[in-house]
Design a protein around this nucleic acid. Structure first.
Lengths: 219, 219
DNA sequence: ACACCCCTACTGCAAGTTGCAGTAGAGGTT
DNA sequence: AACCTCTACTGCAACTTGCAGTAGGGGTGT
């Protein structure tokens, strides 16, 4: 049976529309550029272009590169057609996996140190990405964008990343301060402080920025 | 061979530590409570408790419930032991999949309408979750928490969700305003506006809240 | 009384995805 | 010539998902 186009297939196809790529470069470029929106394994990314060839959305030809024969993948007009159709379909809902939050939700099974540990892990992971994006923006200013015409898109995307990372970082500090006040992780329940927070959240007010306008209720 | 404990297995084990559950209730409670930190399919969640039994981390017994014989799963002391060990291990890095962002990154393959469509999709998906959390907090105030002793944890977790949703919502509005100014989606490159944004991001300053302190550089 | 339908509570299976081990050539080192 | 490391992949088992299918309980219609 003919293989199925997944979102990952379209992501690879979109990269192929920028220029022809060799398998290795395509795979690694995909990991670098899509990591924060569509993280996929090296293994999968290697097999996507083959599927595209099978479907007639890409063609392949041999070329000598780095002293070795490599397959170069090029998008076909059918591929460009398929891409165009894809852009107007409904997107899948976002999917966010954060194990550190899972740990926190079950922090009463462990010590306060375990809870702080989960926050530290999250901070380290986010921090790495945060630094990488800031550095990347520095390189764009020095003319380092691999596809200069697409800088406006990369930068809009990077804005999202930075906002997210800053929000998570602020929340980590907030969470640390909250846990600091807990005598233990267990059986605290609805303390006065928790009630205050719950009341704010129920009114859609950020406990971190209570002066912010809530999203306006329908008046 | 003995099955392997995954993060999902521990998540289910942690739920079993709260009380014994029937398969159906366990599965659906897991989907409800973990959706935003560790989203897993119903199918997987159904098979996890069986694995736990096989590993000796849970026991099962028949009981009559709802006019039908159901398996009730209970955590064992070995299960509690395993949970305790899990809490002190390193968490996996976060993984964030947002197809709408992928579309935006390749918005030059489609029209401005397609780009706005992706933003609308994201707004709708996020909005649903946002409203659900706000409503949930309202129910907590009315004493509606299924495990009242754990309210402090749920509320800390909900704070994270609300912060994230508000940040994403703010960014969506920002992105809409930016794209509004684009004559087309393609080949804009490093416009003066994009350069301004890049410069802010390279200094780790939020373009949405430029008056915010950046994370302090090491002085 | 019996058929029919919907809801609850699952199970089986094919297909998508990941991690990891393994392979194989190019180039440098001892 | 042997050895090692780096690049550039491939094969495979195990994990995960979506979807179709099954099966019992309860209510409604005739």
């Amino acid at each position: 049976m003919a293989p199925k186009m997944t979102t990952s297939s379209y992501a690879v196809l979109a990269l192929l529309d920028l220029k022809p790529w060799a398998g290795y470069e395509l795979t690694h470029q995909a990991q670098r550029s899509l990591r924060y929106a569509w993280p996929k394994s090296e293994r999968l990314l290697y097999s996507e272009p083959k599927k595209l060839v099978e479907l007639g959305f890409a063609s392949t030809h041999q070329e000598d590169l780095g002293g070795r024969t490599r397959n170069i993948y090029t998008i076909t007009s059918a591929g460009r057609e398929a891409l165009k159709e894809w852009t107007s379909t409904r997107t899948q809902p976002p999917r966010i996996e954060i194990e550190a939050l899972l740990r926190l939700l079950f922090a009463d099974h462990g010590s306060r140190e375990d809870a702080f540990g989960a926050l530290d892990d999250l901070e380290a992971d986010i921090g790495e990405h945060h630094d990488a994006i800031v550095e990347l923006m520095g390189s764009y200013l020095d003319g380092g964008h691999p596809f200069p015409d697409r800088t406006h898109l990369s930068v809009l995307f990077a804005t999202f990343q930075i906002e997210m990372f800053k929000t998570i970082q602020r929340w980590i500090e907030f969470a640390r301060a909250e846990i600091e006040e807990w005598p233990t992780t267990q059986d605290l329940g609805m303390t006065p402080r928790t009630e205050t927070l719950t009341r704010l959240l129920a009114q859609d007010i950020s406990p971190l920025n209570p002066w912010d306008d809530p999203t306006p209720p329908d008046t």
